[in-house]
Design a protein around this nucleic acid. Sequence first.
DNA 1: GTCTATAGGTGGATAGAC
DNA 2: GTCTATCCACCTATAGAC
Lengths: 218, 218
Amino acid sequence: MARKPPQAASKQRGRKIEDKRSVILSAALGLFSRFGLHGTTVDQVAARAEVSKSNLLYHFANKEELYVSVLRELLQVWLEPLRGFAAEQDPRTAIAGYIRNKLALSRDRPDASRLFCLEMVQGAPLLRDALARELRDLVERKSEVIRAWVADGRLAPVEPHHLVFALWAVTQHYADFAVQVEALTGRTLADADFFEETVRNLQAIVLDGIARRPGGAA
Amino acid sequence: MARKPPQAASKQRGRKIEDKRSVILSAALGLFSRFGLHGTTVDQVAARAEVSKSNLLYHFANKEELYVSVLRELLQVWLEPLRGFAAEQDPRTAIAGYIRNKLALSRDRPDASRLFCLEMVQGAPLLRDALARELRDLVERKSEVIRAWVADGRLAPVEPHHLVFALWAVTQHYADFAVQVEALTGRTLADADFFEETVRNLQAIVLDGIARRPGGAA
DNA sequence: GTCTATAGGTGGATAGAC
DNA sequence: GTCTATCCACCTATAGAC
């Protein structure tokens, strides 16, 4: 699996091949994220990457290997923002920053978010192993950080997993359900005002909650 | 479009046909939600519904009509819980109840949530119109309710759209990303303890927020 | 209304020249 | 490494008997 074409002798040649592979990968991401694995044809990917179908199949043994290659890159992008959490930080700052970073990702790489979502909804047959290992380890380490914050009384008593899920869910929503967001608000994250409004609202909801007593602290 | 097979004269016969249609629809929902429109074959749906392929194609003119029929039913299920919101209610109770209802739906009808998600992620080519009409109207009406709560000082100043998105996102996450939730927690909403834990945590996060000052009110 | 058989089209993958 | 031509499996949809 994941066979690479035989490496050429010179570095320049290897470079060119990597360039072509990455052009194909990014064309594939765009299409897979919109139409899914089965809704996309190798022909379409080749056309978008401006290579012939048989040339594409020279660089990637078959369609599924191409798909898995795209997913592999994705997982890294996906995990990145969470790595930031550290117990020394002020939790309020850390979480506010996380929401902003993740929303920026939803704005700048919606394709990545959508493909990840598609794969997950369909049971992640090709990501199960990665989930069980890398993701699980990372989330466990960050859960410890959250538990420490709670123990210090700097955070309300919350199960770390549910907080992580909530943070993921509310931020990805703007990428994965962008069509719905736009249908209902008429705006997208590309609109700088809307982006800031979204950041503020999500930070306020998660950090301070929405319930108020009439006559209480506004 | 949406041609129904010629209605038979007797009521009993019409009843039988509706039964068969609904068996096919529910088989289709299960498969479409897992493998998508293009990842599912008519043969598979027919096998699961225990009818022959050509018989299925007697009741539904073609694969896409079947798919759209499934989606149409879905949208109603989807919209239901939101209808509950009314300005007379106590917002805290209304929102806590909404979270519980929506999570129960994620537990009991994960297929519906997943197919809706799949369709949305892929740009909802077949739901765009419905979104622009029904959903938009409903959300606008409920946004007014939320604005009234804010004006009364019973809710923190929040943009209604973002609150609605956040409520949707955090609750559906447990259906759409169930694989991930299970990989990370080892549990599912079918586990009654986990269900209650999830309800409590999400209600606490959204209603009261998670930020605390050390030494402040726990 | 339900079946069997099959037409007709699509798309993944390979062969083999250059 | 890249191309053209082609094979072959799969799948939707229809034809036509019962």
